[in-house]
Write a protein that binds this DNA or RNA. Sequence first.
RNA 1: GGCCCGUUGGAGAAACGGUUAACUCACCGCCCUCUCAAGGCGGCAUUCACGGGUUCGAACCCCGUACGGGCUACCA
Length: 550
Amino acid sequence: MTTSMKLAKLIFPRVVDTIDTLEHKYPHRVLPEGAMVTRFAPSPTGFLHTGSLFASLISWRLAQQSKGCFFVRLEDTDQKREISGSGDKVLEEMDTFGITPDESFVHGGAYGPYIQSERKPIYDIVIKHLIETNRAYPCFCTHEELDLIRKTQEALKENTGYYGVYAQCRNLSHETAIERIMAGEKYVIRFRSPGDPNQRVSVTDVIRGTIEFPENIQDIVIMKGDGLPTYHFAHLVDDHFMRTSHVTRGEEWMASLPIHVQLFDTLGWQRPIYAHLPVIMKLDDGKRRKLSKRKDEEASVRYFLEKGYPIEGFLEYLMTLANTDFEEWRLQHLEDDIFDFNLDFSKMSLDGALFDLEKINSISKECLGRMSAEEISKKASLWAKDYRPDFYEAIQSDSAYFTRIMAIERGGDKPRKDYDKYSDIFPIIQFMYDPYFFEAINQVQPFDPRYDREKIIDVLQAYLEKPGLELSEEAWFENLKALALNHGFAPKPKEYKKNPDQWLGHVGDFAEIIRIAVSAKKSTPNFFHILQILGYNRIAQRISHTISLL
RNA sequence: GGCCCGUUGGAGAAACGGUUAACUCACCGCCCUCUCAAGGCGGCAUUCACGGGUUCGAACCCCGUACGGGCUACCA
């Protein structure tokens, strides 16, 4: 037995399996030609980040489009930062957006476990092999020693890190290492980098093309003091044995590419195809910066859920960021499912897109405008159930009534577009519910001061005598104009503008008096429909109540 | 500091060596209009961060500079 084998055995006394066992246990996936195996690998540090939703949407779609496989793996190797339960929460939130993995730590799958902390036996096998073959070694440097190394490097203006002459433990003999471990010294395992500082590696990224880097010369830590792997090493092992074909991740990982390809190459494993996605940015004080979970509420997907953005609209916005030609396609295919569009790496933008709330609003508005009355009623109700109990209660009191309200000028080529999000609905239509109307009208009657009490009553009573609810919308309006004329209001605003002195106002002013009396608001959706839905009795009731307040 | 990546109007962007530099959002103007929400029409980059070069011809190719971003942990 060689000394390196003795060392490996000392560190991993119970590991008997070999890399070959793993290769057999996790065979290549049998999938159709061109199928992509993608993944989303969140760390359980909180709620789903908007950027993560973006990345997972892309990965999920890519796998689906190609009849491949999309899985979610929990990267929980940093116990210090872990927030318990957040892994499940992330999966739940993805699920509300319809992004469902084929395999995950809750869905299961043949390439598990899908939680890194449970994969330690797998990492151990690979690390043991690396030590046996002298490509990894224990390092006994303490944090203080490492700190000192960094400081001297900084003082000397050299690159920081564990490499070359600074890699003190690299040349420790196996015997010494064995002795120090037996003596109970703490250690980590480092990868012995074969890199040459004068050589360059090229790596292909499907979005950015070929990138050249100096070779990695750092002896990076692959196993931490707590026995868990670092990200770099877990990426190597997991994406190899989980048979990931395309690694889609944020562009912040690009700089570690030299490390990752070195790892894959020295193990003789095929490199995955890399796709580094642009990071979503935000404009702050004139400067662009990454959306920050701590500072920006919109960095959390929850924010949009709470605000009541339609799921479909939010995904559609993300799709416009994902592929630059999506928007044009959408214009041609308004009725189609947004996922009939084929995502393509070549159409992904290279620099981080600014997150544009205005645009999300606009897309969401179009999206809500396109829904049928039944659909928007149902979805608004589901939203309200979670976030606006008073609204929910109002809807539930008579859901057919709510649907009638939502149906106003809906459908057809040019539907009304009153709402960006579900939370906009209630403020606009709550006057349709009696308790809200009476409360509002009791507080203030915003009538135009040009008209005195008598005039207002006069107008309201005149309308009550001839409401025209049974007429067509056109005829109803003709009736309104006639009433207006009888009371000294010009039937057309233009006529009033020509001779303002001849009139008390115009038909719009006349209608406003009725509108306020019936809704406590100066603006409503299509007034004719509103009146029809309220019905004569409630209109009369509201008007007489309003008069009693004057 | 070093190493990478990026830079077309306020925002997302098209263009693939030859176009009046698409389109969407925002903004502005006009029109339509009983309020509102819409809708219609038009405007908004004499120029593609800047400087040089290659070419008959450059937003597109090359070099340099500036600016922005990322990484530079026993975090991911």
